[in-house]
Design a protein around this nucleic acid. Sequence first.
DNA 1: TACATACAC
DNA 2: TATGGTGTATGTA
Length: 484
Amino acid sequence: MESLSVDEQQAASSSSTSPSAPDTRPTSISPQKRRRVEDSTNAAPHASLLKRMGGPSAGKAGLALDQAEINRRIYEASKGSKYFENERRNDERITRKVEAMLARMDERLRAVPEGGPEWLAIEKKADALASKLESTRDLSRHIVHCDMDQFYGAVELKRDPSLKGKAFGVGKGVLVTASYEARAYGCRSGMATYIAEALCPHLITVPNDMQAYVAASQDVMSIFRRFDSNLAQASLDEAYLDVTDHCRINGVGVDDTIAELRRQVREETGLTVSVGVAPNTMLAKIGSDKNKPDGQFRLEATASDCIDFMHALPVRKVPGVGRVTERILQALGVETCGDIWRLRVRIALVLGDGDLEWLLRYNLGIASSIVEPGKREERKSVGREHTFQPTNDPERLLELLRESADRVAEDLKKLDFVGKRVTLTCKAADFQRFTRDQTQTGYVSQADDIFRITRTLLEHELKIQPGLSLRLIGARVSTLKDVR
DNA sequence: TACATACAC
DNA sequence: TATGGTGTATGTA
């Protein structure tokens, strides 16, 4: 199909918006509606906190049990802890931010009445921006996102087949992954182990073994490289590939190519991978989730398929949209990527042109089609941090800082980098984080230098906040120079 | 430049 | 009893 012009999309959008469906109407906010928005905002702290306590990954995936019930149980199990109090503070801060934004929206909407000349001018500008974005759309590549299925868990299953079919999690204080059986109970990566056990009393936990995951990752990546030697590894268990050339050279269709890739991974490693194929990295990444686990999904390479694919997609599913952005967009009335088009003038008014641009990209399904490995020279920083039993003993804190400084120096040496900026990272016993940094006149890389600088920063903090108790400390070096 | 926040995995 | 570590990008003053 020909690429859909923005005007055509606009027409499609307004025709699908029935005037008798008030909830989907574009919108000046009537007094009644306004009150409803405020009420839901005032009611929000509790609701949003409940949801927040579900953890950052709870919103990304669907669930077997009722998520509201799970959130309630997490909330009950967490209540009263220092971590919980910190989450509550953060949630309140975001609530205030959203309220301020809604007030700004009210003000702007009064100043720029819907359908007035100024409104229409903004609409015209937004449409021009969409046309410009549309003209950059690249449909010529088969971009692939490979995502290993419950990767750490799958490696553990290989080691101990008796875990098969059981609810288990990997990790000590915090789960780094949960088996599909455990996920059905609401257990998630990033969740405190004791919360996961409260949700799933028969949960089995196994310690994590990074060495094994790195080794398994190397095996899998070397199989991926047969299909694109220039792949971009995104993490231990994810990679982007451009298989356009591979398909052309071998005269094989892309679906068969991906089926073959998956077969090789399964046969050679015993692990399964889910794959998305699309014209760009964003669509491929979203696609790899569609037929998970052990499945593949391909999006047709036409503009209208890309736009249709995004239309009903909740914005939260877009990579880069997390819990906070989700709340901001929700307050504006944006739940799905399709809503972005309908609300583009409001978005421009309240969030500005910069934010409108990336949101229009989501709406249109436009993103980069370039896949290349991360380059050494793009490295920005090297750091180490660790958590311990909270203490306010200065001697002990300096000891712990020394460990971080030593490890950073070790890594810098291994990687052949030196850096100009040295950062001290702290997390207080109440979970509030802060950083202090100092740019040096020359480059540093030695443990003694990193320790001396961060130590001065820490001692200063201890002086101005007497009795400060910390639960985490770390050091980081940035503004790097490659000395390889 | 210094610091905080948001996000991914 | 009890909630991780590493890195990037971006906004603000």
